[in-house]
Design a protein around this nucleic acid. Structure first.
Length: 180
DNA sequence: CGGCTTTGACCCGCGC
DNA sequence: GCGCGGGTCAAAGCCG
């Protein structure tokens, strides 16, 4: 699990009792929400680097330096290089889950078959190329799907307490859900 | 004034 | 080849 500390502030295995519904799938569409979930509804990993599918769930060491520079990159090479991506779903009223890192928005797109647009963010830390995209599900407007791409190569910029607070919030939402 | 958001345009991959 | 959809750029504007 330590592999996820790239985007999860490692607040250690302390008190938070959230069950991470961790799956590793190369096909996002297989993922279904709607089971009885907690605040974090699901976590997916999309690993495909160098065109070869990696069935091995190894989330480590896949730091591929694939600078996609507006088509100006060498054509032949790195055609199908994709960074590992990790998606998870949270039940939240706000789109932006403050995970402790600083993000700058660089894009915003309407997505087909979805009422809600998708937002694109980039980590503002110097030299850090981690990206994330945030999208609310049409299926369930209360669920926000966040997809991380890449790993943070720097420490978190805010306190971990903040993240704990988020987790607590999620649990609160969970409680609400169970009431309804 | 610097950092961030907004937004339209552009680029690219893919399916037909 | 063409059109569509997704992803990114970059200028302009906003805000603390």
């Amino acid at each position: 699990m330590e592999n996820f500390q790239g985007f999860f502030p490692t607040s250690s295995s302390s008190s938070t009792s959230l069950s991470l519904n961790l799956t590793s799938s190369l096909d996002y569409s297989e993922f279904e929400c709607g089971k009885d979930n907690d605040g974090i509804l699901g976590l997916m990993a999309d690993i495909e680097v160098g065109g070869a599918k990696n069935e091995n769930n190894s989330l480590v060491g896949t730091t591929t330096e694939s600078e996609v520079k507006r088509g100006k990159t060498k054509k032949g090479e790195n055609k199908k290089i994709r960074k590992p991506r990790y998606a998870f779903q949270t039940r939240s009223q706000v789109d932006i889950v403050d995970d402790g890192y600083r993000w700058r928005k660089y894009g915003h797109k309407a997505v087909k078959n979805s009422k809600f647009p998708r937002s694109y963010y980039r980590c503002t830390h110097q030299g850090c190329k981690v990206k994330k995209q945030v999208q609310r599900l049409t299926k369930d407007e209360g669920i926000v799907e966040t997809t991380y791409e890449g790993m943070h190569s720097h420490p978190i910029q805010k306190t971990n307490d903040n993240f704990e607070h988020i987790l607590n919030q999620m649990q609160i939402y969970t409680s609400f859900k169970s009431i309804i």
